[in-house]
């Protein structure tokens, strides 16, 4: 899905989280929102997911104004930094949650739900953990379950907030490739937030560098590396 951000701004009371920013994301791209904390990248992601309402500006999905679309209607697969898995549900119940939450008419039959959950567990390469609870999983497993849960609703886009933030260095490397593979397999427009330039450069097709609520530069990783547009970008990517 093609995503267009048109002059989106957001302030919380007196503090401005986002200056008016505009950005076009082509369908099927894997995009990194890169910047230090407080740069507004998570706010932008949450606005795309429908978790935050912009103070001004519009969001267009495939050309249609979707600014006022509720979270439930957006069908954005969102992976939270803390993963936000439901602690009182098994892995199976977590992944099936979005399907079971649908109104009766749209809800797939039980067998179909089971089939889809099994397929997703294969995709994240964790078959056979259906009956475990989140607290019985490792950090990397939790991240992948959160990803599978987001994918279960057949999302129109995939949004990930610091997806590797809570993991140690070794697992982080492994899971980067995992995300790339899942992106390539599903073809979903995928946007992830990170403060780690290696992660952004290695993984993304398109990197959006942000600072102080502004977009500093948008470009392919090698463009950004070779031709930083502002002193901030130069400093940030060489740091």
């Amino acid at each position: 899905m093609h995503i267009e951000i048109d002059e989106i701004a957001k302030s919380f009371g007196d503090t401005t989280a986002l200056q008016p920013v505009s950005l076009a994301i082509p369908s099927g791209a894997l995009v990194a929102l890169l910047g230090p904390s407080g740069s507004g990248k998570t706010t932008l992601l949450r606005i795309l997911g429908g978790l935050e309402y912009p103070t001004s500006g519009r969001v267009l999905f495939d050309g249609a104004d979707s600014t006022g679309l509720s979270v439930q209607q957006r069908r954005a697969g969102f992976v939270f930094q803390s993963y936000a898995l439901f602690r009182h549900m098994t892995v199976f119940e977590n992944i099936a949650y979005g399907l079971k939450a649908r109104p009766r008419k749209l809800r797939p039959p039980r067998a179909e739900i089971a089939r889809r959950v099994a397929k997703l567990l294969d995709l994240i390469q964790l078959p056979g953990i259906t009956d475990r609870y989140p607290t019985q999983l490792s950090g990397g497993q939790r991240q992948r379950v959160a990803l599978a849960r987001a994918l279960a609703i057949e999302p129109r886009m995939l949004l990930l907030d610091e997806p590797f933030g809570a993991l140690d260095a070794k697992v982080r490397k492994e899971l980067r490739h995992g995300l790339r593979e899942i992106h390539d397999a599903t073809g979903l427009t995928t946007i992830f937030v990170t403060h780690d330039q290696d992660e952004a450069m290695e993984l993304a097709d398109l990197v959006v560098v942000m600072s102080m609520g502004r977009i500093e530069q948008v470009g392919r990783p090698q463009d950004i590396r070779e031709r930083p547009a502002t002193p901030f970008v130069r400093e940030f990517i060489t740091a």
Partner: peptide, 27 residues
Amino acid sequence: IDREVEEASATLGASRFYTLCRVIAPM
């Protein structure tokens, strides 16, 4: 209660009522 858990439920398409019954009540 971690707000992200409620948000996760909403992004998965659950209505607020469903979230209250299935996610918050058990907690």
